[in-house]
C-alpha cells in the first residue's frame, strides 16, 4: 500500500489535470501560461505511472518495514495514507470544479490591494478603446483617481460576479472579478461599484451579471465609493469560461 501511495496520488492528480484541460476548466485554478507545461508533465507522468505498474517489483518486507518504522507504526501510517488518498479523490475527482466566492473577496480586501496595473499602464489606458475595457481596466482607472470629468461621458460594458459593498451593502454592490498572477491562491478581487438599491432582491451574491452603464457620482451617502455605475437594467449571465482576469 505505502509503496503505491505516490503512484495512486499521481494518478489522481494526472486525471484531474487532464480532465480539467480537456473540459477547458484549468483556468479555474492556474494561469493560462502554465496550461501547456502542466498538460505535458501530466502526460509524461502518466506514462511513468503505467511503466511503474508494469515493472516495479513487489517490495520486500524489509523495505516495507523501513518505510513505516516497524510493525507497530504500520497501522497508523496506513490509516493516514488512506485518508490522504480518499481526500485527494474527493477533492479532485468527485467535487465539481468551482471558482472562488465572495467569502474570499471578504478576506482579501476588494480593490484595496490590487490595482493590478502600474500607474504608467493605467495612464496608457486613457484614450484607449473604452468599449473593450474590462473590469480590470475600469477599476484601475477608478483607483488611480481619474476625476468625475473623465468618467462623465464614458460608458462601460462589463461582466463580473456580484459582491456586496462593505460600507453600504443595501444600495451598492461591486461587479467583480479575481485577478490571478499564478494560480487561484494569489487571486485578488477587483471590482467596479454599482449603485442599484435593492439589488439583493434580484441578484444573489456570486451570481454573474453583465452591466452597460455610464458613471455617476455615488448617490449613496454612506458608501465609501465616489464614482459608481448607475445602470437601468442588469442582465444576468452565465459564468464565463475564463472567470479570472490576468
Amino acid at each position: 500500500m505505502n509503496q503505491w501511495q505516490g503512484v495512486l496520488l499521481s494518478l489522481v492528480g494526472i486525471i484531474a489535470t487532464v480532465w480539467l484541460g480537456i473540459t477547458g476548466q484549468l483556468g479555474l485554478y492556474i494561469h493560462p501560461r502554465y496550461f501547456v507545461f502542466t498538460i505535458i508533465m501530466a502526460v509524461i507522468a502518466a506514462v511513468l505511472v503505467v511503466v511503474a505498474f508494469a515493472v516495479v517489483p513487489r517490495p520486500s518486507d524489509e523495505e516495507a518495514l523501513l518505510d513505516t518504522g516497524g510493525r507497530r507504526g504500520r497501522w497508523l501510517w496506513s490509516a493516514g495514507s488512506v485518508l490522504i488518498i480518499v481526500a485527494a479523490v474527493v477533492a479532485l475527482l468527485v467535487l465539481p470544479p468551482s471558482t472562488l466566492t465572495s467569502a474570499t473577496v471578504k478576506q482579501r480586501d476588494l480593490n484595496g490591494s490590487a490595482s493590478t496595473l502600474t500607474q504608467a499602464e493605467a495612464s496608457g489606458l486613457v484614450g484607449g478603446d473604452y468599449a473593450a475595457f474590462t473590469v480590470r481596466d475600469w477599476s484601475s482607472l477608478l483607483r488611480q483617481g481619474a476625476g468625475e470629468d473623465f468618467f462623465a461621458d464614458k460608458t462601460a460594458t462589463v461582466t463580473g460576479f456580484v459582491t456586496p459593498d462593505k460600507s453600504d451593502p443595501e444600495n451598492v454592490f461591486f461587479v467583480a472579478r479575481f485577478f490571478v498572477s499564478c494560480c487561484a491562491v494569489d487571486a485578488q478581487p477587483i471590482g467596479i461599484p454599482v449603485y442599484y438599491p435593492g439589488w439583493q432582491d434580484e441578484f444573489k451574491t456570486d451570481s454573474w451579471v453583465t452591466i452597460t452603464s455610464g458613471f455617476k457620482m455615488n448617490p449613496s451617502a454612506i458608501s465609501d465609493e465616489q464614482i459608481v455605475l448607475v445602470p437601468d437594467t442588469i442582465t444576468p449571465t452565465e459564468r464565463p469560461s475564463e472567470p479570472y482576469v490576468y
Partner: peptide, 11 residues
C-alpha cells in the same frame, strides 16, 4: 478550490 489550485499548480 484553493487547495486544489496549489496541487494543480505544483504537481
Amino acid at each position: 478550490t484553493l487547495s486544489i489550485s496549489v496541487v494543480i499548480e505544483s504537481l
